[in-house]
Nucleic acid binder design. Structure first.
Lengths: 140, 140
DNA sequence: GTCTCTGCAAATCGTTTGCAATGCT
DNA sequence: AGCATTGCAAACGATTTGCAGAGAC
């Protein structure tokens, strides 16, 4: 598995340092759309010298190389999403602050029609509200 | 027209100070989804004592009272949108940095299906790319 | 040995807040 | 007079950057 991360990073032109490997593995193992601080907090126990600067630099590198998306969702911190094959939306629960993936996409034609003649590079769809779990907990 | 702004603000429980009126009028006259800094720069000539703090405080007040939406779109600055009746998407041109309205919405049923049992409070849809004008200019 | 990566600390940028001065009723 | 609003300046929180030391090839 570690070997795979190595190869994967190299394939994307990223030199696989220990920090970069562990950050990438964390992203893949914890699909919670973590903030930079989440990543730092999770890994600093294991890599005591880790600095937030490295986390930020690494995430920017990953984003530049197309390994992760930065998802602009309400709230002051950026959240990162390992680049998924299938386009999907995000739902942020304003109660527990978790960000969920939502399998939802536009019909191509609708986009074509609304944005004809424009070059579309990225798109993202965000919902906010209260998730099932929080609704249930609050009703109890 | 000025009278109308007065009444409109009062109807939303906002005391219509000169600054607030001018900021609201600016938002309505310039539907470019301005940043706080855009608003400040545009109005400080006319209101020399205006401070950014007042712009931020006013935008937060407007947002709390439902007069404007804050649109979370890639980029480090918040952008404001006078609350529109019809839901619509946004398209940000990475070339000229303008943010356009896009008349596009999900079929209700698709949302229901994907997010059943959740309480949905807000949603927003953002595209980034290059707009018609910039494409034309760059090809020339 | 060179070139890259890390990580501290300081800088930066957007935004918020404390508070005294001002304005409105 | 009494309460709300303004606007300066300082505080803040997330992110970026300069740079010296550590590490990789």
């Amino acid at each position: 598995m570690i070997k795979n991360t190595d190869i994967f990073l190299r394939e994307h032109g990223i030199k696989p340092s220990y920090q970069r490997k562990r950050i990438y593995e964390y992203l893949n193992e914890h699909r919670i759309h973590p903030t930079a601080n989440d990543i730092y907090t999770a890994l600093v126990g294991e890599i005591p010298t880790l600095s937030k600067a490295t986390v930020y630099n690494t995430m920017n590198l990953f984003a530049r190389c197309g390994l992760v998306d930065v998802i602009p969702i309400e709230g002051h911190e950026a959240r990162f999403d390992p680049h998924p094959e299938a386009p999907h939306a995000h739902f942020r629960c304003t109660c527990c602050q978790k960000v969920y993936d939502v399998p939802l996409s536009f019909p191509e034609e609708a986009i074509e029609e609304a944005l004809s003649q424009c070059q579309i590079d990225t798109f993202n769809i965000n919902f906010t509200g209260v998730c099932k779990e929080c609704l249930a907990r609050n009703e109890a």
